[in-house]
Design a protein around this nucleic acid. Sequence first.
DNA 1: CTGTTAGCGCCTTCAA
DNA 2: TTGAAGGCGCTAACAG
Lengths: 368, 368
Amino acid sequence: MAGKHTIADIARLAGVSKTTVSRVLNHKPDVDPITRERILRIVKEVGFVPNLIASGLAGGHTRLLGVLIPSFASPFVAEIMHGVSEAIADTPYELLLYHLNEMAYENNKRDIIRHILVSRLTTGLLSIFPGPWAEHVVRLHTDEGYPVVMVNDQAAPPTIPWVGIDNRAGAQQAVQHLLALGHRRIAHIQGPMQYYCSQERYTGYCEALKNAGLSLDPALVAEGHFNRAGGYDAAMAFFSLPIEQRPTAIFAANDLSAYGVLDAAAKYRVNVPDDVALIGFDDEYSSVLVRPELTTIKQPFREMGRHGLNMLLSMLDSSKHSTTVMSAFAVHEQKEQSDSSLHMQLDTSLIVRASSCGVAESQTLSSL
Amino acid sequence: MAGKHTIADIARLAGVSKTTVSRVLNHKPDVDPITRERILRIVKEVGFVPNLIASGLAGGHTRLLGVLIPSFASPFVAEIMHGVSEAIADTPYELLLYHLNEMAYENNKRDIIRHILVSRLTTGLLSIFPGPWAEHVVRLHTDEGYPVVMVNDQAAPPTIPWVGIDNRAGAQQAVQHLLALGHRRIAHIQGPMQYYCSQERYTGYCEALKNAGLSLDPALVAEGHFNRAGGYDAAMAFFSLPIEQRPTAIFAANDLSAYGVLDAAAKYRVNVPDDVALIGFDDEYSSVLVRPELTTIKQPFREMGRHGLNMLLSMLDSSKHSTTVMSAFAVHEQKEQSDSSLHMQLDTSLIVRASSCGVAESQTLSSL
DNA sequence: CTGTTAGCGCCTTCAA
DNA sequence: TTGAAGGCGCTAACAG
């Protein structure tokens, strides 16, 4: 039975105390180099791996990091997780998955979050798309001092460590692209307005129009719920406007809504991009499969995951140092400071495909 | 600071011993009902949650289950995980994620798997799409007796607990659908033939043809690598055949390949489904987004995840009972027996959309 | 039914 | 530079 060794076994084999073995395992400096080599050799020989549970208990903290994800439904989450697992690959930490079934729970959101803290399994938390959980996650950090990083969502101004994108700038990119193509009547299909990112994208849309000297036409703005049906409904409304009021271009707050626009366009026999140009937001996998392929604003999901996890790791690192090296006051000072730098906004990028201008079609097809 | 309680605290508050508290926490029967109620009340009041790390150490096994996933790239994995987390939701277990970056690792696959065993973090393992890891996962179960369930992949005859589908029957469903539509020249785009599921799907294809009294035309079979480019290449080859040899229908071993067929059809100006009918396998999310929408064989991914996790839980359960209740010999007997019933083959289902017969188009569109 | 006594395997003082 | 001793919070025998 391989691997059933304990530190005691190694100590016996090496003829030293358990303490010494523990020291070399934890990279403490105060060990005779010769002894260290001998121990390491034995460790390798017998394939010893320390019991993480035991060391978690004794050390007061585990090597587990929690990842709170809202749902697997969204392909983004998978992309983000991809980045997360890349980042964790060469660390000694492991990932504990907290999945929140979307329904039920309404009342005990707080309990579930608290459970994460109180069960003491994890040493830190990465919260992806917190959505309705955001406030509890924030409190976990603010009130309890638990190391938390939020990925890709934010309460108005982010108050805790956070990695995301500049939704406003992304929306401006989108609208500017349409403006550059000569469009003047540009519609917007909003996301759910209780989300900050929806508000930001809408703001970006408004600003881009204003910068171009265009006024906002309320008839060209509709809420689309971030899903296909919502996009469909919104687009149907646009297409049923009198011809001279119709938009010549649509900026959908996410790709899913844009798919709905394509449905509506097919129904109305509106040609995309000739009759109406279309741009989405996210760059989902499916956006190269729909016809025409969807122009969109790409979010760097994988990078978000990677940076988020790295940020969490660095927080753990610095808190470890601080508690041993610095006075309580100094700790507080440094925390304030590093927190303020713990807001990372990644860049979005414009991906031009056929849905905004026909010429792109041949390019993307040939790139297959 | 909420939740910093230990069993000792509860014991003090309730005026009983720690042991008693531990007993009610672990649902042992031998506790005075009155005392039990009192303890539970206090536990609730102070919001006590036992330290899982400590109980893992003391009890000799944790409440963590490992999930080994090959990559987040595939949307299936997300679906399966969805089922997994549904199943784990009302158990006291948590999920530990082992993610295998596809590359590197070639040499230390074994080490990584061994690490799972040896680090003792988890009590059992759910291995999703093991692919190249399969043999090591199998050995983990066979040689080390570690509780393992494989989801949706299998070495020739599955030798360890396993949940998946009947790929052969699924393929037959697909081909029979095409036969029923009157097609006689049905092509097949295979998956990578080193995968058992690809072989099975191919076998199902052959059998369905034979049952219909048709002979196999080697020109109508091509390997497609399970991806879009592979499907494209294969379809290009089919479409460049002399007209009378061309297939009137194509069964792609997965949806991705089928997307490639659509690309090729667009290039060749072949109309789907009028010139060639198309059916895929998997029912990916995107298959309702491509045009025409893709007829396909749906795999019940979520159910696989759910059943897989439940199977793992029941294995843990029974092994717990067996080690305490039965002799070593009896344990072995029961293990053999339950293992043999621990192979679950779920049903696939045929999803008819526009790519196989035009009439379906209006139906699916209207269901939006 | 309940409490007492030992650890689980490791880390962390403290003293040598 | 090393070792011995104590404890992390809980569970699992044992007795009562």
